[in-house]
């Protein structure tokens, strides 16, 4: 259960902070078949993404398998300053996790 990386960029513009994050995950729907063996590839997708600013949750995303492979998430929030930390972590339906951290520019 290796903790996988989340790539994050957080930029301060005016009084809002724009966060862009990229996760590395197959996001399998359970509808696809392995092209060689013909076996169904089991569901494997991120169910929850937690975004925190200096330890306080600013956004939680619940996802289903309809979110694209290697998911992209972007949002804007208020109340942060350049130099603060943004942390994003996810957990998938198999209990695997990923996390990443960035400093707001």
């Amino acid at each position: 259960m290796a903790d996988k990386d989340v790539k994050i960029r957080a930029q301060h513009k005016g009084d809002v902070t724009e966060v862009k994050a990229l996760m590395s995950h197959p996001m399998e729907t359970g509808n696809r078949k392995d092209q060689k063996t013909g076996e169904v590839i089991p569901e494997h997708y991120i169910t929850e993404v937690n975004c925190q600013h200096s330890g306080e949750t600013v956004l939680t995303a619940f996802w289903g398998p309809s979110v694209s492979k290697n998911p992209y998430l972007s949002f804007e929030f208020k109340g942060a300053q350049p130099g603060d930390t943004v942390t994003i972590s996810w957990v998938d339906n198999k209990g695997e996790t990923g996390t990443g951290e960035a400093t707001i520019k």
């Binding site: 600013h53 956004l59 309809s66 998911p71 992209y72 972007s74 949002f75 804007e76 208020k78 109340g79």
Partner: peptide, 10 residues
């Protein structure tokens, strides 16, 4: 603290 915009790919 949400500032009105969220996006992803589906």
């Amino acid at each position: 603290r949400f500032a009105g915009k969220v996006s992803t790919r589906v």
